[in-house]
């Protein structure tokens, strides 16, 4: 089964994303900030990470930089998922190593389409 780590400080977003992902046959884990997400990845790396930008403790961007610098051998796909919808944010995310970018609010079609693009749906 494909695995996805949903990283978002909003409980509602995590719940919505989990629901959609489970209907797309993903096994889902959750983390509330970048720090928790990094621990989860070190424990076992998921196929894909759905990543919020603004979070307490460690932001999505800090997490992404730490992840790409880490020695986690499998390279999980990273799909940013954020309300930061400006071109400068998108560019920064891609340059930091994100594979795809979802502009919130998202729906099922958007998420499914982006997961397809990274080769996972």
């Amino acid at each position: 089964m494909k695995t996805c780590l949903v990283v978002d400080d909003s409980k509602v977003i995590r719940k919505v994303a989990r629901h959609i992902l489970e209907t797309l046959d993903f096994s889902v884990r959750e983390a509330c900030d970048g720090r928790e997400a990094l621990d989860a990845c070190l424990e076992s790396a998921p196929d894909v990470i759905l990543l919020d930008w603004n979070m307490p403790v460690m932001s999505g961007m800090e997490f992404l930089q730490a992840l790409r610098a880490s020695d986690i051998a499998s390279r999980p796909k990273v799909v940013f998922c954020t309300t930061e919808n400006g071109m400068s944010y998108i560019r920064a995310a891609i340059e930091a190593g994100a594979d795809e970018y979802v502009m919130k609010p998202f729906d099922r079609d958007t998420l499914e389409s982006k997961l397809q693009i990274v080769g996972l749906a």
């Binding site: 919808n85 071109m87 891609i94 795809e100 970018y101 729906d107 389409s113 693009i117």
Partner: peptide
Amino acid sequence: NQFEIQRGLPIRRMMRWFTA
């Protein structure tokens, strides 16, 4: 709109070919 642009279009192509 934001929903249409995200259906099927890879982000790099959106950055390359579309203006906000």
